[in-house]
């Protein structure tokens, strides 16, 4: 029973990692840029929700605060692409990587100025409540995180498979030139992908904040999430979630069965092992293009 609870809590953490990783992969697949500020987007989303919802701040209803935070982060993502990344067209990958790393540093600094460096908690209706199933005590927060992640994944799947703009995002990621030929406004599609990644980051941030405290350095979780993305095979959306779940599960298990400190390095140990055994990640789409 104890173990099961541990697993569920680990699964919930894994969902958050997975969602941040999903943001990485979304942007990478569609635009071939790697957004190292994805974790900081998450942190910003969490702080925005806190500002909108907490009673000593704006005190809006929780659901409204969440929606607003997701929308604002969508706009932030869109603007980052339109104002910064787009100007880098033709520059090397490294230049874009440095840009996004710098962006992350700036966002952490700005968050520190606005919200301070003390850990703060989101007043979430989920906190402290639990469901009892037989002998199991399941936190409302953990359950919500898992359910929201499942729903969001299903939603994203339908979005990419069924909607015109979702298909256009796929098209632009698979063959940018051809998408351009077909009259797909590739630049706008890229900005929309960044908006989507911003929104997903905000959801990850809300879920993260529902379980614990946040401070500006929370954004560094993005590093762990990028390990998750690579484990899953950078470029695979299901892989990103899977990578996140694996890390989420391994952390509590290793600190329980191996040694407390080990959980800190486990994600990277797994990353190394995966890279040695399956260099393209677990669920990579290494299929040669027949063009």
């Amino acid at each position: 029973m104890d173990l099961l609870q541990l697993l569920i809590s680990g699964l919930a953490n894994g969902c958050v990692y997975g969602l941040i990783a999903l943001g990485f992969v979304l942007i990478y697949k569609a635009t071939e840029a790697v957004n190292f500020a994805q974790g900081d987007f998450m942190m910003l989303g969490a702080f925005l929700t806190l500002t909108f919802a907490n009673s000593n701040e704006l005190g809006l209803p929780f659901w409204l605060a969440c929606i607003l935070a997701v929308l604002v982060m969508g706009v932030v993502g869109y603007l980052v692409e339109a104002l910064l990344i787009r100007r880098m067209f033709g520059e090397s990958q490294i230049a874009i990587v440095i840009l996004t790393i710098s962006l992350g540093i700036v966002l952490r600094f700005v968050a520190g100025v606005i919200w301070g460096h003390e850990p703060q908690s989101l007043e979430s209706p989920l906190a402290g409540r639990e469901v009892r199933l037989g002998g199991l005590v399941l936190g409302f927060d953990d359950m919500t995180i898992i359910i929201v992640t499942i729903l969001l994944t299903a939603g994203l799947y339908l979005f990419f498979a069924k909607t015109k703009i979702g298909l256009a995002m796929q098209a632009a990621s698979q063959n940018q030139l051809a998408a351009y030929y077909m009259g797909i406004p590739v630049k706008r599609v890229h900005a929309l992908v960044w908006a989507l990644a911003g929104g997903v980051a905000a959801i990850a941030g809300i879920l993260f904040a529902a379980k614990g405290t946040i401070d500006p350095s929370t954004g560094l979780l993005g590093i762990k999430a990028s390990a998750a993305a690579i484990i899953g095979g950078f470029g695979s959306l299901p892989g990103a979630l899977l990578g996140g779940l694996i890390i989420g599960l391994v952390e509590p298990l290793s600190s329980r069965y191996v040694a407390a400190g080990v959980s800190q390095i486990m994600p990277y140990l797994i990353l190394l092992i995966v890279l040695i055994v399956r260099p393209h990640g677990l669920l990579s789409q290494v299929r040669a293009k027949k063009v």
């Binding site: 796929q170 698979q174 998408a179 293009k289």
Partner: peptide, 17 residues
């Protein structure tokens, strides 16, 4: 220059974007 990982029908739909 087709879209290699999309179905034939989705490729056609993209032509009508």
């Amino acid at each position: 220059e087709i879209f290699p990982l999309m179905s034939v029908e989705d490729n056609l739909k993209m032509g009508a974007f």
